[in-house]
Design a protein around this nucleic acid. Structure first.
Length: 490
RNA sequence: GCCCCCAUCGUCUAGGCAGGCCCAGGACACCGGUCUUUCAAGCCGGCGACGCGGGUUCGAAUCCCGCUGGGGGCACCA
């Protein structure tokens, strides 16, 4: 049996989208499961919307996710080039062949005329199909059109079809399309550039793609493409249409649903391994009562037949939870990676300079060490540890509740005790607090809570004594005194 | 308007192809409790679903039909 070859074919008109990444991942899993190859192909035939910047960004995002391609841009391969704008001769050759055989014909209708046809059909509540006006133009008629300066597009002749097109979809089963609903569609623009349904077929065939795994929005394209395969005398690949990922309103996931670019998740401090694990839980679930999977497990378990047909709603909360699971695992395994992620977040927030020196790096690492177990995403470092990197900003409710007049002398006494403490370490910091409370007959909590607010501005955060140690004597004492002053005026 | 797809807790899903092991299992979220200097994590417990109607069958979440609901597509975009 021929080796499995799958592909993902993004068009560089925006950043890599969650839905695209998910689709690509399933392609990748399928190829890996069978020891095949995964190809990346850039579909940039729409020159007006494609940019090199987006292409570069997409490749970068794939690399970040760890979805690496065996063939494609930047890595090459035996079936290149892998960018459609560099494959023009190929399309021209097959378009010419189709036209020569009469399987395709030039159409002189202008976009405006076609738009008018569609508008009328819509007004008369008829299905929108091409009228077939240029279908049987005689050679003299064609010459006349050309003399008028009209530039022809090329249409595939599909209306002759008698039997239905049956698509055997690996996830959906058999889907039947009746020929009367198909029409002659344009395969080459009047400027000579190929359209999706044409270039896609030519490339998939020439690149030896065995399995086309894509989103179900493409299902209606499949019969058109099957007609193309037939016209070219080629055997179509196996196809599988994945469901579409939906937003909370059950509409196709898009920008209006919030963060849909993979890049956004990177910026927020998500882990690629968590995202990939999460991907495996949409329209699939390898084992009934297990949520966490290694990549190897996913590769071993992947089976297109097990993929669901219903469209999942993107569950951001669950992704966040999963990321937290991976984050906590990382603390023991590779704390420096967590530090790096937090550094990125803090820099974007302007809490850390762009160039971090050795001393700042060491400090950051101590901070991360004591807050890490609370981080679900890198972004959480801001909520739990911003006060390490800037002056305290008091939360109004927290200050009102804990910086009371009774707490003022305790805070003041604690500041005094800490200023004399040496070494300035956790154990001594705690003992000092308990000592202050014992001497004034107060319970420890009567000082612990105000002290937390004094040092962090909030009621939540890492352990008080650890954070105090990391903050250092000077800042801790200053903050306690300042809070004592505020409390005394309460 | 036409074509196509889909349908289990609020959400992601297991189960459906081989009907009884499912008065439906797990996870997220939520709500209690526990631990605790706070939060988080952990642990214990709770809430919560087979869209509706017909069939087939001794028996249906599972098979069939209809309905309803949702989604996608109908470009010289991909």
């Amino acid at each position: 049996m021929d080796s499995v070859r799958t592909r993902f074919a993004p068009s560089p008109t925006g950043y890599l989208h969650i839905g695209g990444a998910w689709t690509a991942f399933f392609n990748w899993l399928h190829s890996r499961h069978y020891g095949g190859r995964f190809v990346l192909r850039v579909e940039d035939t729409d020159r007006s919307r494609s940019t090199e910047q987006y292409e570069a960004a997409i490749l970068e995002d794939f690399r970040w996710l760890g979805i690496l391609w065996d063939e494609g841009p930047e890595v090459g391969g035996p079936y290149g080039p892998y960018r459609q704008t560099e494959r023009s001769e190929l399309y021209a050759r097959y378009a010419g062949e189709l036209e020569e055989r009469g399987a395709a014909y030039p159409c002189f209708c202008s976009p405006e005329e076609l738009e008018e046809e569609r508008r009328r059909a819509s007004a008369e509540r008829r299905p929108h199909r091409y009228s077939g006006r240029c279908r049987s133009l005689s050679p003299p008629e064609r010459e006349r059109m050309e003399a008028e300066g009209r530039r022809a597009s090329l249409r595939l002749r599909v209306t002759d079809l008698a039997e239905p097109i049956v698509v055997s979809d690996l996830v959906r089963g058999s889907v039947v399309f009746e020929p009367e609903h198909l029409d002659d569609y344009i395969i080459v623009r009047s400027d000579g550039t190929p359209l999706y349904n044409f270039a896609n077929v030519v490339d998939d065939h020439l690149m030896g793609i065995t399995h086309v795994i894509r989103a179900s929005e493409h299902l209606p394209n499949t019969p058109k493409q099957f007609v193309m395969y037939r016209a070219l005398g080629w055997t179509p690949p196996a196809v599988a249409h994945l469901p579409m990922i939906l937003g909370a309103d059950r509409k196709k996931l898009s920008k209006r649903h919030g963060d849909t670019a993979v890049r956004e998740y990177r910026v927020q401090g998500f882990l690629p391994e968590a995202i990939l694990n999460f991907f495996a839980l949409m329209a699939w679930h390898p084992e009934a009562e297990k949520e966490i999977y290694s990549l190897d497990e996913l590769v071993a378990a992947f089976a297109l037949e097990e993929v669901g047909r219903a469209s999942p709603v993107f569950d951001f909360e669950k992704l966040t939870w999963l990321n937290g699971v991976y984050m906590r695992r990382l603390i023991g395994a590779d704390i420096d990676r967590v530090v790096g992620i937090c550094a990125g977040v803090l820099q974007r927030e302007g809490l850390l300079p762009g160039d971090v020196d050795a001393e700042q790096r060491a400090y950051l690492k101590r901070v991360v060490t004591i807050v890490a177990e609370r981080l679900r995403t890198g972004r959480d470092i801001v909520a739990y540890g911003d006060f390490f990197f800037r002056d305290v900003v008091f939360e109004e409710a927290a200050a009102a509740k804990h910086l009371t007049r009774q707490s003022a002398p305790l805070l003041e006494a604690y500041a005094g005790a800490l200023s004399a403490l040496d070494p300035f370490e956790r154990v001594g910091i705690e003992a000092a607090l308990r000592g202050v409370c014992a001497r004034s007959g107060a319970e420890a909590r009567a000082l612990i809570h105000p002290a937390r607010v004094a040092l962090t501005g909030r009621t939540i955060g890492p352990g008080l004594f650890e954070l105090c140690e990391v903050l250092g004597r000077e800042r801790s004492v200053d903050r306690l005194r300042r809070a004592a002053l505020i409390a005394s005026r309460a």
